[in-house]
Design a protein around this nucleic acid. Structure first.
Lengths: 337, 337
DNA sequence: AGTCGTTATTGAAGCGTTTCAAACCGGTGA
DNA sequence: TCACCGGTTTGAAACGCTTCAATAACGACT
């Protein structure tokens, strides 16, 4: 049905090799021939077959990106940064969402491998990185995003989540809060546990301050609401005076539930701090204080590492880049008592 | 580098044909052989080469989805619905964002065509649909999403945007508003112009009611803020008493700017209604009234149409499915005067 | 013993590219 | 006149897979 390079060759009265050259290195073909071939292409509506091209080339010209949640604006921003950077170098980005499921993560990676992607960017759910080792073994460079590589075995672009946790907790403590609840999960996700640990370390140093961890199934608005309802059901003397949410989606969920019932005020009764600083955090009912991560830069930088690792081949240098998170103070933590 | 089906065949002592059969129709292969081959696959870490498979098959097993804006939660929800539906049938979804640029839309479509996708879902920026005709000509089914096909030449899944515009305007009028500003653009986008027209038709019927259109460059939060600043700069007697934003992103931008300066209250001084009812609309400073579109269903339904059109071949029946939008009233329009 | 059926496996063709050594062509310099 | 040269073009091989007609193996039946 679709015209092939062969049809074009026949139409233009040249060999297939020449057509291919016109397509890929027109400068080595005589101008008149280029014109004739171009016209034939036009006429037949010929479009390159990417599958054949890739088969021949041995690898695709796209990168795979695996994120925890495709509906989280943070990851969309990250993806956007990655895409922009990739396009500049003639690559495209395939994206898949693992939805916090190691199994789904696994099958996305498998798909990418079948596709022979030129590289993989991943924010892993699964703590077991053997599949990633396998990928590298197979010649596919892997870069961790939004998550460091503790043993430096992978290149990575991350934000210091432990420090982020400290920043958040310190801020809450400075506002006079002492009964702090951490909302987030699954705790198996490294970013989440790092943030708790950071918070814990700071809180431990303050006499009388406590940290209570409430684990969620996912980092979603819905889960945030659920936890907030649990908190609301608590007797006043066991209730936290501050909530540190593992990301802004959760924070927004918590906020919605608190505001809806109206029995507790933010920040007067409960202070609230989120993480990621997604655009919507600033536009919330009560604008949410958050720990900002430079999502777009992370994505772009990660693609940069991938490109250089892809070019360098097996003996590439692994590089760990770590951004520092930044506190963005808004109404959800200041003003109350 | 990577093992091929040939290597597996050698390792297992069978022919390549048999390996292929084990992969695709294991039931016709003797159990013992299956075991032997499976073991060889395991041992060599063999992974199918998708490019070769597709080349042979003639078409890929993915659909292409082109949306206006990958960072708009509405489209993310739509994509999510599409993806879920596609996976059930063994397809994957490739997504690209046109960012309101016909040129970018064009190049994404070209990429999809090179990839020989099994079908295209698109929310077109470009009013000129000839490229889509070309695609169909080439045997690639096309379904329009979030946008009807006026001449019924394409299958489509949409929401009645004219009616949506009417609903929004009617609601504002019922709240006693008369000087209404429409914020949105580019007006070349059909969804946007339909919404204005719907609003206009209703407003025209009410004596003393006026509609002022303020066109934006994009449907983004930033543009919303920009327009809100324009509005704030207006003398009080020329200022609108209600804003109808073409989507929630714009609405949130408008809201942010209004709230930040604090000189105008929502809804007392200016009522605000958005469109799409993204999750974040309900969590805004002032929860935003919006016209809801069932994003997830739209995506899923569209993939359904694509699947049936792909199966039916050239003589497929085109089907236009239209959802009805739904008003979701929140604080941004009620309570003031 | 020969024939037919069934079941399992084989081997080669072909999908549309790219690449590369070889061939071609019209001068140029010896 | 001939060898050689640079600039063009050619033709075939190879990439890894699926498919399908042909073959093989082996009982069962006549």
């Amino acid at each position: 049905m679709a015209a092939s390079i062969r049809d074009v060759a026949r139409e233009a009265g040249v060999s297939v090799g020449t057509v291919s050259n016109v397509l890929n290195r027109p400068e080595i073909v005589a101008a008149a021939t280029v014109a004739r071939v171009t016209q034939a292409i036009e006429h037949l509506g010929f479009v390159r077959n990417d599958a054949a091209r890739q088969l021949r080339a041995g690898r695709s010209s796209s990168f795979g990106l695996v994120v925890l949640d495709t509906r989280n604006p943070f990851f969309m921003d990250l993806a956007h940064g990655a895409q922009r950077r990739a396009i500049d170098d003639g690559y495209t980005v395939l994206m898949g969402g693992s939805d916090d499921s190691p199994q789904r993560e696994h099958s996305i990676l498998e798909m990418f491998e079948e596709h022979r992607v030129a590289g993989v960017l991943i924010s892993p759910v699964d703590t077991d990185l053997t599949q990633l080792w396998r990928l590298r073994q197979a010649g596919i460079p892997v870069v961790l995003v939004d998550r460091g590589s503790s043993d430096r075995s992978f290149s990575s672009v991350s934000v210091d989540d432990v420090e982020g946790g400290r920043i958040a907790a310190r801020h809450l403590l400075e506002q006079g809060r002492r009964r702090i609840a951490f909302v987030g999960g699954p705790l198996g996700i490294k970013q989440v546990s790092d943030r708790v640990n950071g918070a814990r370390s700071v809180i431990a140093e303050v006499a009388g301050a406590t940290l209570e961890v409430r684990e969620t199934q996912a980092l979603s608005v819905l889960e945030g609401r659920r936890i907030a309802e649990e908190i609301l059901a608590l007797p006043a003397d066991r209730r936290p005076d501050a909530v540190f949410a593992a990301n802004d989606l959760l924070a927004m969920g918590v906020l919605q539930a608190l505001v809806m019932t109206g029995s507790l005020r933010v920040p007067e009764d409960i202070a609230l701090i989120g993480y990621d600083d997604i655009d919507f955090a600033s536009a919330a009912v009560v604008p949410i204080t958050s720990v900002r991560q430079p999502a777009v830069e992370i994505g772009a930088t990660a693609v940069g590492l991938l490109l250089s690792e892809a070019r360098a081949g097996a003996d590439a240098v692994r590089e760990q880049i770590e951004f520092t998170p930044e506190l963005v103070v808004r109404a959800s933590t200041v003003g109350g008592a």
